[in-house]
Write a protein that binds this DNA or RNA. Structure first.
Lengths: 194, 194
DNA sequence: TGTAACCGAATGAACGTTCAATTGACAGAA
DNA sequence: TTCTGTCAATTGAACGTTCATTCGGTTACA
């Protein structure tokens, strides 16, 4: 993140999220973002050199948000399995409480923006990296099977993302029961078999 | 699908896929699609009433392709587990042999086009529905645990999609070993525990 | 001879971006 | 306290470009 967060910037982010969620990247002109933010177009260009840059900065902002959310109140005294369930649960909960961000990030992840922005990422802030470290730990202490780390990470995130999508756009209800059912599937898949 | 497939239309589809994969929906103007297809702009409008319609028709075309691919050479004498592995393997193989389609469909799935096109879908051609039926069968014959069908479907597809993404964009190699490792995760997760 | 396929210059609207002008906040001088 | 200079913040009309779409005409062929 290269911009300092101010109230004004947060409003611009919020409006951009709402509009992109509803209309997509290219269905949301800068003029509309300005209008919805109650700000002049010039003001947006005062903070962001271009629309592309605004979108990339917004992406970084979202990654930080979810990362902070998942790993806040971290209790390392809990069993690994408990923590695994918490991580997965929080991952879903965040996106289901912030569907704008979910929609935006999914669009971003599947657009050429990802390539454009790859260089400017601080890899350490990658939302996946904390999760990856946590899964690594699971293998090290033999709670998880010994699996290629990329397969392991993408499996956990993939299943959770796809669950969230089914809840947001589809016919699935967001209940504890459904959530736990999904997490149990992946837990059974990756846990150390005994 | 509302258009008859002709050689010319397949060329237009192919060019559109390539361009959208590289540049995204709105980075690919009709003029470029025409140029790459070696066809006049007017010709495209002869077959498709609008750019949006072209994209939606292309989406339907892709869904049919993958569906035919997965369920061709279907051998119902094989064990359920074998067929499960084949479906998952073919799902990944198709997208990894057709990365243009993968990129396009992922973009489509996460764009407002999805909503626009929902009404015009024949639900039966939904790529997921054949897979859903196959998973249903697995539960009926007690090869799979009794799980909410939407959770089950989205888990299997989510994990495979996410695997394909890691191979295409990321650091994961597409080897039989990796593929099997991924499928075993989800199989362990959903199979009837004994 | 009629019709479907095909062509591409022209059109007009929409959009990202610029920039000259204005306002507001505030530090230091008087 | 008042005045003044400075600079960041803000404004939005205007600009130039790009793009989807149109349409009048041409070709292929049945």
């Amino acid at each position: 993140m290269n911009v300092q967060l101010t109230e004004k910037i947060e409003i611009i982010f919020k409006s951009t999220l709402e509009l992109i969620c509803e209309k997509g990247f290219h269905g949301t002109p800068m003029s509309q973002i300005a209008k919805q933010s109650d700000v002049a177009i010039g003001t947006i260009y005062h903070y962001f050199p271009s629309k592309d840059n605004l979108i990339i900065e917004l992406f970084c902002y979202c990654k930080q948000k979810i990362n902070n959310y998942i790993f806040s109140d971290w209790d390392s005294t809990l069993s690994y399995k408990s923590r695994f369930f918490i991580v997965m649960r929080k991952f879903c909960a965040f996106y289901l409480e912030n569907t704008d961000m979910f929609s935006f990030m999914e669009q971003f992840h599947n657009s050429p923006y990802l390539e454009i922005s790859r260089n400017s990422w601080e890899k350490n802030l990658n939302e996946e990296n904390n999760i990856m470290a946590f899964l690594y730990e699971g293998m090290r202490i033999a709670e998880l099977r010994n699996i290629n780390i990329y397969i392991l990470t993408s499996s956990c995130i993939g299943i959770a993302t796809s669950f969230a999508k089914k809840v947001i756009y589809g016919p699935l209800e967001f209940t504890d029961e459904n959530l736990n059912e999904m997490i149990e599937i992946i837990w059974n898949g990756v846990k150390q078999q005994n």
